[in-house]
Nucleic acid binder design. Sequence first.
DNA 1: TTAAAAGTGTATATTTGTGTATGTTTTATG
DNA 2: CATAAAACATACACAAATATACACTTTTAA
Lengths: 207, 207
Amino acid sequence: MFYDLSDKELEALKIIRNSLVHQGSIPSVRELMIGLGYKSPRSSAVILRTLEEKEILRKKSDGRYQIVDFEIPEDYGSRAQTIKVPLLGSVACGIPIFADENIEAEVSISIEMIKSGYKYFLLRAEGDSMDEADINDGDLLLIRQQQDADNGDRVLALIDDEATVKEYNRSGGMVILKPKSTNKIHQPIILKSDFRIQGIVEEVISL
Amino acid sequence: MFYDLSDKELEALKIIRNSLVHQGSIPSVRELMIGLGYKSPRSSAVILRTLEEKEILRKKSDGRYQIVDFEIPEDYGSRAQTIKVPLLGSVACGIPIFADENIEAEVSISIEMIKSGYKYFLLRAEGDSMDEADINDGDLLLIRQQQDADNGDRVLALIDDEATVKEYNRSGGMVILKPKSTNKIHQPIILKSDFRIQGIVEEVISL
DNA sequence: TTAAAAGTGTATATTTGTGTATGTTTTATG
DNA sequence: CATAAAACATACACAAATATACACTTTTAA
């Protein structure tokens, strides 16, 4: 199927796939030109045409290209596609959550861990601000950004400038954030119902 | 084995090997011409043809040459018994890892480096895709093909169509591939636990 | 309604492998 | 020695594949 592709065609295909995963669209002729190191858009346009002739790409009804169904290799599980997610070091009230100074790095996460249509970020757990039993200093929390939650969800909230993870419970006109285990240090937090959370903890990653 | 090669043929072979390791491809007729000091491309073309007739080179299905027998220099078992292992140049999407096109050469490796019962292959490290401190551009990685690993093993994984070497760590429902040293560029990669690796890095051979 | 961005056509340039003819050096042999 | 045969190099040219320059629509967004 792909055996008669030249080096440049293969490289183009890589760029196209990458662009699909990371930007959601096939790159423009000029983007592809830059990616492949060409100096004229014609060259990359020709490559696209060739890929179409080789039936790797197909034009959709709106004239745009689409990748013709990828042959899934037998060892598919061993080929991962990832998406980059910002890793936030510390989060404080007042600073927009994705402000530059918060972003420590971009971490690659398997796209299988991601629901499309949502934004995600990673947060590094620090000290005891996360009072959950299974979150330790240095762990990474994968958080899906959304402002509503169901009862029982583990949510990230900003309480007194601290990033805090607790169980979400709405009851009556209030929101109660419960620590998993109640003790002297970890007590529930009671908030007005217009309080907004930052997101839902999807995964806890121990490094 | 190489005893019936002329001086120029041997020199050509050296240049070809060097080009293979450092640029990942057999040199063009004109590159080889320059390397050998010829003034016409014909001369080097003839040499290539001769090497093919002497079965030092072989044409792959895509028309390109591959080296039939590439001995690792130095004293990697120069007199010892050897076994031939494929040298893979680039590994790309959709192409089975041992497809003809990927195999640049067959390299002789001392059998003392090989555990019986496993398949092996060599991979050429390219640029910075291998972020380990002790793997440099052009090094050859001897990889034992297997799909499971223990925590701490150095594994080869295909991430977004890049061959990547990182430390394997399974924790909870996830697999985390850690770079040896973490910094802005080299961050862990977080994958779902059904992810399968390509193999384990057994040796790093610097040429 | 305009300006910028994106895709495409034509013509030309560059690179690559290879063919033919010819020149040069080496070697073997009468 | 002489010289023919073989091996090795060079010059030049051609076709196919690739890449470039540039201009001209069409599309998109302001």
